[in-house]
Amino acid sequence: MVIEPFGDQAVRVIFGDRIAPEIQMKINQFTERFDRSPFKGFIEYVPAYTNVVFYYNPTEVRRNGKNDHLSAQRQVIDYLNQLGEQINNEPDRAAKRRVVHIPVCYGGDFGPDLNEVAHVHHLTPREVIEKHTQPQYLVYMLGFAPGFPFLGGLPEELATPRRANPRLKIAAGSVGIAGKQTGAYPLDSPGGWQIIGRTPVPLFRPESDPPTLLKAGDLVVFDAISEQEYLRIKGEQA
């Protein structure tokens, strides 16, 4: 674990340099431990693939710190280092991961790039769907838009470059592939992902807390559904 300053109101705690479930687990373990004893002046943390950034208010940290000769940054780094040492002494706990099933209607108007993705990999559209619904994807982080998951675990044989011409509008719920990534758009937005299907389940939930279906550390399974089922679920959501 390495801690680096990130400007004058944040620090970055780094747990590795590659995308791997065990690194995500360490980050989870660290933030869960932190949740039980945050420091005064702490604002929020944001986990990513290999690190987590802690934001703080320097004036608050200094006001509440034991040693006001030390910079807030020094105090925060010392505190997080201590926490890291405590965790090193704890046995690794198997992560209790929530599995979230996301129904997806593949192909047709909902997945205009399904045939193209199949063509690129010399597969049938049905084989693409079978392969895409196979894995349990790990949510490494949310970012880009509210509820947008960065998922790991896309089968190599489905990795497809982004579209040469990005679309101006991709509908909310669209499920796509971009390189080795797969994910779903919570909001209507422009984008270059290869869109293979659409989910009727909202990923962004502005009326609930937290406002998203997923959080970092969850496992996601995509389930293929028919257009009728899509419309039925969509109707229930409305």
């Binding site: 604002i43 929020e44 943390y45 944001v46 986990p47 934001y55 982080m141 949310l142 970012g143 880009f144 838009a145 509210p146 509820g147 947008f148 919570p186 937290p210 406002p211 998203t212 959080k215 970092a216």
Partner: peptide, 9 residues
Amino acid sequence: RCGYQRYGM
């Protein structure tokens, strides 16, 4: 709106 960046907000 602090505290929700981890959800992509």
